[in-house]
Computed example of a mutant assay.
Amino acid sequence: MADSGQPRSMSVPLAAFAAGAVVALLVGVFGKVHDPTLVGTTTLGFRTVISMKVVLSVAIAVLVVLQLLGALWMYGRFSRPAPGWVGPAHRISGAVALVLTVVVAYHCVWALGLESGTFSDGRPVPARTVVHGVLGCAVVGAVVVKLVAVRSRRAAGWFLPVAGGLLFALLVLAVLTSAVWYVAAR
């Protein structure tokens, strides 16, 4: 680890944000050119792929709120110091949220693709669908940024909380434009 008196490098955050942007763009391009199909997907025992994604997205939302609370506790934002179990619980819940996010993202891109403009039958794609698709691509890019931030020892101290906050915000928005909308529409 670098000496605390030394200035931290901006190259790690800049490279991470650039890599995240490239990954988000590539996922978006793939989602746009890929012909959506249910072949290669699973429902994990749910009736449909959509219902599976809704349940997993709600679980992700709960986990990211726990991630936020754990991070705030570890950063000393609560009146009492974090007990020893908070760090391991934060890492485990983060790993579970990551795995679930990858499962949902895969099924979104593979089964639904990235829609914009009009559907094949001429109906316009709803703005919520377009926004959700763009947010989903941004989530995948933000995951890359967050993983670099967690592993980096040379980055500035602000990088990890900013990367975590970005991922948190994007995940919440993605869930609001998908699972919450789906449940509210029923």
Rank of each mutant, 00 (worst) to 15 (best):
M52W: 01
M52S: 15
M52H: 05
K53R: 10
V55K: 00
V55T: 13
S57H: 04
S57M: 05
A59G: 13
A59I: 03
V62L: 12
L63E: 10
L63W: 02
L63G: 09
L63Q: 04
V64S: 06
V64W: 00
L66E: 11
L68E: 12
L68P: 12
L68I: 05
A71N: 12
A71F: 07
L72V: 07
Y75F: 10
G76C: 02
G76W: 05
R77I: 12
F78G: 12
F78T: 12
R80W: 04
P81D: 13
A82R: 01
P83S: 09
P83N: 08
P83C: 07
G84I: 04
W85D: 15
G87D: 13
P88K: 04
P88I: 04
H90D: 15
R91S: 15
R91M: 13
S93P: 01
S93V: 04
G94L: 00
G94Q: 01
G94K: 00
A95M: 12
V96E: 08
V96A: 11
L98M: 13
V99G: 11
V99D: 12
L100M: 12
T101K: 00
V102T: 06
V103E: 13
V104H: 01
A105E: 04
Y106R: 01
C108W: 03
C108Q: 08
V109T: 08
V109K: 01
W110A: 06
W110T: 03
A111V: 06
A111N: 08
L112W: 05
L112Y: 08
L112Q: 08
G113H: 04
E115W: 01
E115P: 03
E115T: 03
S116E: 11
G117D: 11
T118Q: 13
T118Y: 08
T118L: 07
F119C: 11
R123M: 10
V125G: 09
P126L: 03
R128Q: 11
T129V: 15
T129K: 09
T129P: 09
V130G: 09
V131Q: 06
V131Y: 04
V131A: 14
H132A: 06
G133I: 00
G133W: 02
V134A: 14
L135T: 06
C137S: 10
C137Q: 05
C137N: 10
A138E: 07
A138P: 08
V140K: 00
A142E: 10
A142H: 04
A142I: 04
A142R: 03
V143R: 00
V143Q: 06
V144M: 03
V144D: 07
